[in-house]
Design a binder for these strands. Structure first.
Length: 391
RNA sequence: GGAGGUGUGGCCGAGUGGACAAUGGCAGCAGACUGUAAAUCUGCCGGGCUUCGCCCUACCGAGGUUCGAAUCCUCGCGCCUCCA
């Protein structure tokens, strides 16, 4: 097995672990920022690392379309190409089966996409997807799956799982045990027996890790949580578990408490670009008029480069003006918030205090920030102009 | 002085007899975003109300024609262009 996973501590079902990959160690539970095209939008690899990220996601479908897997191979692999030196996990394109629903057809053998860029056809098979990820030299490859939509009839969900399971077997057989690892993906929509069966089916195939897919596709939060509660404990305990596409901090906390180790979500990055910031005081919609003359930092308890010397008023101004710096600063902040959140969860599990701190941690991103009295002196200004952004 | 043009909701700008409280865009107010076709999308945006509807005031101003005018006519005012 090319990835090693150690469980360092446990707290109820929650685990504090360490996943060792060819390009570095991932302390879990971990949040993996999404860099679909090879970069988290607006963020350099150095900034990503400085924010505390230990692993980055990228996407096979998007990279296969542009610049192409062969080109990435000729350029020395995905790490060399992107400049991100830490672990990389690539998603297989299974999510695009759902998100690009109008641009693909699925058959027993695989998926045929019509490029969203120019309409040209692109064929994905379980074997081809494994091979492409191996050629890019990623640390964690994901099997090709069919991400079911929501809602979906039970019979359709079951048929879909039969197909995805067949793909899982083919992917497993095609994986040549390169330096990285291959993860299986459980589907089964919102049907408990299907979910549990999917977990058991995959476990037999002995993947390097197991993902829960088919969530974050529009289902209500209680449905999503139920899926986690059925599936996560049913997956092999000695391998990392990955909840795909989730989510808000409260959902991550819930999943961690049920034994999930890895997460990814576009939310912190996309919301940042849309001027929505996560803070320990609640959610801030930075374009709102109430921040026009708010001199406070975004989040006084945050150590990110934006909070170090950017007032809400200035960030508001940058967003209003369409200044590129705005989404960049906001993304650096939101990423740092998520990554700090995960660090706090890891610490809590290590102390056996997850349940105790759960409420306190969960309230961070809920609700609107309280108005508060603007305190003109509240923005800390460093006396050392070179201190900022240095990592 | 003469000729022609033009004046529309915070701004720009469609509309040239009824389907107009008036297309669009911007600005403004708010909301959504979950393995990224997303620096995107949605709602509101004259005033009031019991806001899937009703009432009032509205397209420079004042008159007029008409069943009916942002749209036609007259006068006035402002602005633009050309000629002297």
């Amino acid at each position: 097995m090319s990835l090693t996973f150690e469980i360092l501590a446990a707290d109820g079902l929650a685990r504090r672990g360490r996943l060792t990959t060819p390009h570095g160690v991932i302390e879990t539970p971990a949040f993996m920022p999404v860099g679909t095209l090879g970069a988290v939008k607006g963020v350099t690899p150095q900034e990503l690392a400085a924010a505390g990220a230990s692993v980055m996601l990228a996407n096979l479908y998007h990279l296969a379309l542009r610049p192409g897997i062969d080109a990435i191979g000729r350029l020395g692999g995905l790490h060399r190409f992107t400049g991100w030196t830490g672990p990389i996990l690539t998603d297989s394109g299974g999510f695009q089966v759902w998100s690009l629903g109008g641009l693909r057809t699925v058959d027993a053998g695989g998926v045929t996409f019509r490029s969203h860029l120019d309409g040209s056809p692109l064929r994905f098979t379980p074997e081809g997807v494994v091979d492409a990820q191996a050629r890019m030299g990623v640390d964690i490859a994901m099997m090709l799956d069919e991400c079911t939509s929501w809602p979906v009839e039970r019979a359709a969900a079951e048929a879909s799982w039969e197909r995805t399971l067949a793909w899982a077997r083919r992917a497993r057989a095609a994986w040549n045990g390169g330096p990285g690892g291959l993860f299986g993906i459980a589907q089964g929509s919102v049907y408990p027996d299907l979910r549990q069966r999917a977990a058991a089916d995959l476990a037999e195939l002995e993947f390097d890790g197991y993902a829960i897919g088919g969530v974050s596709v529009g289902e209500p939060s209680p449905e999503r949580r139920a899926v986690v509660e059925w599936t996560a404990p049913a997956l092999p305990a000695d391998r990392p578990r990955y909840l795909m596409g989730v989510g808000y901090p409260e959902d991550i906390l819930h999943a961690v408490a049920h034994g999930v180790d890895l997460f990814d979500c576009v939310l912190p990055a996309r919301n940042a670009r849309h001027a929505v910031l996560f803070t320990r005081q609640g959610v801030l919609r930075m374009k709102n008029a109430k921040y026009r003359e708010d001199p406070r930092p975004i989040d006084p308890e945050c150590g990110c480069p934006a909070c170090a010397r950017t007032s809400r008023a200035f960030l508001h101004h940058l967003f209003r003006s369409g200044e590129l710096t705005a989404p960049v600063l906001a993304t650096l902040h939101n990423l740092r918030f998520y990554l700090d959140f995960m660090a706090d969860l890891r610490q809590a599990i290590g102390l056996g205090a997850l349940t105790d701190t759960a409420e306190q941690l969960a309230t961070r991103s809920t609700g609107e920030d309280p108005p508060g009295e603007p305190d003109p002196g509240s923005l800390p200004v460093s006396s050392d102009p070179l201190e900022q952004r240095s990592s």
